[in-house]
């Protein structure tokens, strides 16, 4: 797969193109230019390091939506064995924008639930761009309850622009579906680890995002509304998304400083898509570490801590205190 570069990576893209060209020249002419290539590769690495050392919130937002970014099913493939996808909400339909199923993570059976985006146009439409309808959230809830019955820890992978704003979705109770998940997830009797792997878009993300741990990949984002949506409301123009992304503090480091995130998982240089194996290995290690801690907690402690954590959200002043 050819690497795709974003706008702000153009200088890196040019250098990489040059390296690629040189490789072809060397191959054809039998001249030894490997030294030259190595030099350029080093230069490209340094350039990437420098570009990636000062990314703006908007650039990170673009990375979180990178067309080659690993999606839920990619991590499932890289991290789990014996995965069986489970379908349907038993009431209306199966929503391909949310995938779920059981598998083994280093031998431990787990329930995985995640948003799923599509890679090519056809699949993007099939997956509805990762925007779930109520039946997607209801499928998720059905399987979370099943996980609870069979004592399987739940791993949620968050990657959505948001819940789908459509006529049918409203008719079938999008609000209720999201609300119900928040309500039930707060008291699920198994450990729940949520990881933002790409875009954490608003209520549509949170609806599978209540748990005992919140992890974020380094270049993922999590926000109350998309930067474009925020810009069009507060700046009256979607073109100001860059400003909105900055103002809302949607990046993992800003959210960690607000104490909303438990751990940031660093990504390979250039982003998760540059080395998905390494990303998946990091993710697996982190999830295992947190799971080890959580499965050892007595159930009342687990639930109490989850509740306390939920109650701790919020920054306000109490003039009586």
């Amino acid at each position: 797969m050819d690497l795709k570069f974003l706008d702000f990576e153009q200088s890196i893209a040019e250098l990489e193109a040059k390296i690629e060209e040189l490789r072809h020249v060397g191959f054809d002419n039998d001249i030894n230019i490997s030294e030259e290539i190595a030099k350029l590769e080093e230069k490209s690495r340094k350039l990437t390091e420098s570009v990636f050392s000062k990314l703006s919130a908007w650039q990170i937002s673009q990375l979180s939506r990178h067309p080659q970014r690993p999606y839920t099913l990619d991590y499932v493939e890289l991290m789990l064995e014996d995965f069986h996808e489970l379908h349907g909400d038993r009431g209306f339909a199966d929503d391909p924008a949310i995938v779920a199923g059981m598998g083994r993570l280093d031998d431990r059976p787990v329930m995985v639930i995640g948003h799923q985006k599509g890679r090519d146009t056809k699949e993007k439409i099939y997956r509805n761009f990762g925007m779930p309808r109520p039946e997607g959230y209801r499928k998720a809830l059905r399987l979370m309850r099943m996980a609870e019955r069979f004592r399987l820890p739940i791993l949620c992978f968050i990657d959505t622009p948001g819940a789908y704003p459509g006529i049918g979705a409203e008719e079938r109770g999008q609000s209720e579906a999201i609300a119900r998940n928040l309500f039930e997830m707060s008291r699920l009797k198994v450990p729940v680890i949520c990881t933002v792997i790409g875009e954490g878009g608003s209520g549509g993300a949170l609806a599978i995002g209540v748990g005992d741990r919140l992890l974020m990949l380094e270049y993922s984002t999590y926000s109350v509304i998309s930067p474009e949506g925020c810009a069009s409301i507060l700046w009256k123009s979607a073109d100001k998304a860059e400003l909105a992304a900055e103002a809302m503090g949607i990046t993992s480091d800003r959210l960690e400083s607000l104490e909303l995130v438990d751990e940031i998982l660093s990504e390979p240089l250039g982003g998760a898509h540059r080395n998905r194996h390494q990303t998946a290995d990091n993710l697996r290690a982190a999830i295992n570490r947190h799971l080890e801690e959580l499965v050892r907690l007595p159930l009342p402690t687990l639930l109490e801590r989850r509740y306390e954590r939920l109650m701790s959200y919020g920054v306000y002043e109490d003039t009586a205190a």
């Binding site: 609300a179 928040l182 997830m185 926000s223 809302m248 503090g249 909303l260 109650m311 920054v315």
Partner: peptide, 10 residues
Amino acid sequence: SLLSLFQMAK
């Protein structure tokens, strides 16, 4: 921002 999103869960 996210603080208000999390009020939904709270």
